[in-house]
Design a protein around this nucleic acid. Structure first.
Lengths: 210, 210
DNA sequence: ATTTAGATACCTGAATTCAGGTATTTTCCA
DNA sequence: TGGAAAATACCTGAATTCAGGTATCTAAAT
């Protein structure tokens, strides 16, 4: 029996999916959420096999939520739901640990196929996903293979840089020498092969480090 | 149900407004004040949907009062009430966070229209407001609108900065002098009140400029 | 017990950015 | 056609970042 959790602020969508799955014997909708926070709460104590996640939620970005869920939970398969065929969003979703995506106007057998695919460890992209998306992801997936690890302290510095603080300001905030901040910055720039702080931040974001 | 609070030293005005709204099902007059201090006291603990504010009060300037109310309370919509069509006062009121103004000799449906407009986030200016006022406000509203405009060229620079290029690299790419790039960067930093490129990018993103 | 990774701190010199101007030329619109 | 806005370019000095090190200390891992 597969457990499914639906996160979507439109009750109609959840209802429609429930209807589609009504007489599929092997799945069970274990709950629904209409906001990101509700979902986060529920998922603290539950690990559904599959999470259907609306990308456009009222209280937070669906991509962000995908990140948050993935951080705590490597088990569940996450399938994004979108109304538009937004290639940029799709690739971002996949980078953040999503396992597939569906258009909300999908048909029943497309949903079943997606469930089957992700449960078997594959990625499911809506039929509507154009070739470009697939290509794009293929080229990227090799590149992002090994993300250079970043240490705790380095990440602290990184986040403060992202906030717009400069070296000395960060040093003051972390009670360390400006030299140390520079060292951390330098090490990260080396790890991510960046030649400026802007590049560092950009690459860190691409690598989902922040 | 919309709650309305009336600040006017003439009981007749409050009475007249009450009469006008008597059989409008969706509004409810939650109270009235005849002095500024009385109003301030009441509004400490209450947040009506709409405040009708007489500009000429016995104990204080209505504009001042508008300021005071707005400082504590961003929620309520404030509609100024005047007996004269004083364009200078009107614009000042709008600058201080007012949401509209009405002449005291308004008709019932004008009041209802004003309520409807401000509740929906719009500005209501009395029909009697002369053209000049409208023009004046129109020209100002764009100027003081939240997002400082960014020019085409500035945006080009901004996007390249976001890509992680530095000043000289951008200069080369755009076939302009590094000095010019710096000027554009500097101007944008000033517009967005940023003290570093990172901050500039951060704020630009927040303002949806990129 | 020794190595390894992480965090810390320091140094120097070159490059870049920041903050404060000024000034000229285009371009566009009233 | 005469301004206003935008784009261009330049200058200076101070601050910060970048790139290249070295070095010490601690905690975890082998």
């Amino acid at each position: 029996m597969l457990s499914i959790y639906i996160i979507d602020d439109h009750p109609l969508v959840a209802g429609g999916i429930a209807m589609m799955l009504k007489d599929v014997g092997y799945v069970n909708i274990m709950g629904t959420a209409t906001t990101g926070n509700e979902a986060i709460n529920f998922l603290k104590d539950n690990k559904p096999d599959i999470i259907l996640l609306d990308i456009s939620l009222p209280d937070m970005d669906g991509l962000q939520l995908c990140d948050i869920i993935r951080k705590e939970n490597k088990y569940s398969k996450i399938i994004g739901l979108t109304s538009a065929n937004e290639s940029s969003i799709i690739t971002q979703l996949l980078h953040r640990g999503g396992n597939g995506y569906l258009l909300k106007n999908m048909e029943r057998n497309e949903l079943l196929e997606a469930i089957d695919k992700v449960i078997n460890g594959k990625i499911y992209l809506s039929r509507a996903a154009n070739e470009k998306v697939l290509e794009h992801f293929a080229s990227l997936s090799s590149a992002l293979s090994e993300v250079p690890a970043i240490t705790r302290r380095e990440k602290e510095v990184l986040l403060l840089l992202e906030e717009g603080l400069n070296g000395p300001q960060i040093a003051e905030k972390l009670f360390i020498s400006p030299y140390t901040v520079e060292t951390h910055r330098k090490n990260m720039m080396q790890k991510l092969n960046a030649s400026s702080t802007q590049q560092l931040l950009k690459k860190a974001k691409e690598a989902c480090l922040i």
